[in-house]
Design a protein around this nucleic acid. Structure first.
Lengths: 290, 290
DNA sequence: GCCAAAATGGACAAAATCAAACAAAAGAAT
DNA sequence: ATTCTTTTGTTTGATTTTGTCCATTTTGGC
């Protein structure tokens, strides 16, 4: 029995590995070994238990235990005598695990996942979708991998990497790449998307008040405004933690969006402003996310 | 059956990583063996049981069992004494479909790494660098992470992802994203880079003959030509396995490039053509990479 | 058509690998 | 320092893979 799903690329989505929550203990030597195994696997395509054990000077059993663990994470497929690279649909996730992005991804993961799932369901019927930069939009894009007949336009290289090999056609903006966020910005990107028309835009934000919504990067803000200007349906994804928060740039007013998807009832002031701006507000319940 | 090192297809062991611990009777793993058989089949059109068994240092019976299994999967057709490709013999040296990126990365990894290192050293002095799609260019980009004062222009999302967070400024082309290769192509990308001027372009290829150099994908070929047209120094990276191979598209003639970096002396015919085209040929020695 | 050499595949033996249980070693916490 | 936890090593028997023997079939030459 037991069997937890072995092929989950990102842990946060699968809530079933419930045990030891805070077990980020000081495993210092163990990860080094596993990194070695994965490196070898990437360069050679397969590894042998005996060979690795011999090279690292540890017992076969230790390597075997490492392989079991790595297989549960979906990073390899165990075979008799060793392991090979998983052959299924490429998991991708651009190799550099940008810590800051990962950290933001974990913050309020349940709420974001619920918002992302709801948003993905709503846009499934549309043909051309503009996807903004951000963690919540990134989570939403994961649901789009298997969506057919969709053209996705984005300035997020993370989103495009995630969708690579999936069903949607992906178009990426061209221009300067912002390092931490892996987003494309600049006049070239603006000009490129200014000529298009999207059925629906999915926008992220870092803050939301009754006055409008905000972002901390003015480079990305310009392109967000393009998405808003060139889309029929304009969906803002914003979890409850961002209510009443402002950031560097005001991206737009509440009247600029047609729908807000969040994970809790907004405070009265914001709710009133949303109603006045005739924004369709949807609440995604974290429980309802599979 | 003792420590076999069959040529260069499977060994994959970094020779001197750890001193001879317990002795290694590294038997080639089952999937590695089958991959070897299929590779041999693809390049030669047929395989002989005895020959394969001899090369891999296993018994005939083992190979025979592998063939039975592979035949069940429809990957080959067994005949008396060996096996042939399912459809019919393909004696031509014309590749039509493109293996997956990770698989290509492993093939001739040592040579590619040496080429990449040499190329990275040569372009370190330049300011604006155009980097093409491909495994060798990808490996080269890895060396560029710590290079300051460089602007990298590329249509490869893999390269841009690799360089993310590094010192160079990265600019990516915009347009349609080709799955698996994660390259951007199309008129938008072309138009965007047509207006620029690069100090140096680093181009990959899938085949090289005295007539010119080739690529699998006609989508990417257009942008390769832009790189060639808009760059002062035009460097082609091409490992020795690609000599005398042709692919779908002829990207350009030898006279279109200013330098060729490879990992072995080219055959006479190609060498003569390179000299006639006044191409600067550099040989990277795999030993010197490390 | 017949024969010898080679190849095949079944059966069994040998070798390697695996997993579970337990012991030993290395740290961490108190 | 001591105890507890975690990690690693070792033993054991079961399982899987590989090798060898040998009767049978196929191939190629006469």
């Amino acid at each position: 029995m037991v069997d937890d799903s072995p092929r989950s690329a990102i842990p946060s989505a699968t809530p079933d590995l419930a045990p030891s929550r805070g077990d980020e203990r000081a495993r210092t030597l163990l990860p080094a070994r596993q990194t070695f195994i994965l490196d070898r696997l990437a360069s050679a395509g397969s590894v042998s238990v005996t060979a690795i054990a011999g090279e690292l000077g540890v017992s076969d059993m230790t390597i075997r235990r490492d392989l079991v663990e790595l297989e549960r994470e979906g990073r390899l497929v165990r075979i008799h005598g060793g392991a090979v690279v998983p052959d299924g649909p490429a998991p991708v996730i651009m190799d550099s695990d940008e810590p800051r992005f990962e950290a933001r991804l974990r913050r309020g993961a349940d709420g974001k996942a619920a918002i992302a799932a709801l948003a993905a369901g709503l846009i499934a019927g549309h043909r051309t979708v503009a996807v903004d930069v951000g963690t919540t939009t990134y989570l939403m894009a994961r649901h789009l991998r298997e969506a057919p007949h969709i053209k996705v336009f984005t300035n997020s290289l993370r989103v495009s990497g995630l969708l690579d090999g999936g069903l949607p056609e992906v178009y990426v903006a061209g221009g300067r790449v912002r390092a931490d966020e892996m987003s494309v910005y600049g006049p070239t990107a603006i000009a490129q998307f200014e000529t298009l028309w999207f059925d629906v835009a999915v926008i992220g934000a870092s803050g939301l008040t009754a006055e409008g919504f905000y972002d901390y990067s003015f480079e990305d803000a310009d392109l967000k405004r393009v998405y808003l200007r060139r889309s029929g349906v304009r969906i803002l994804l914003c979890d409850a933690a961002k209510f009443q928060r402002m950031s560097l740039v005001e991206v737009g007013k509440l009247s600029d969006i047609t729908m807000l998807i969040t994970d809790a009832e907004p405070p009265a002031r914001i709710a009133a402003a949303l109603a006045a701006a005739r924004v369709d507000v949807r609440i995604a319940s974290p429980a309802a996310s599979a």
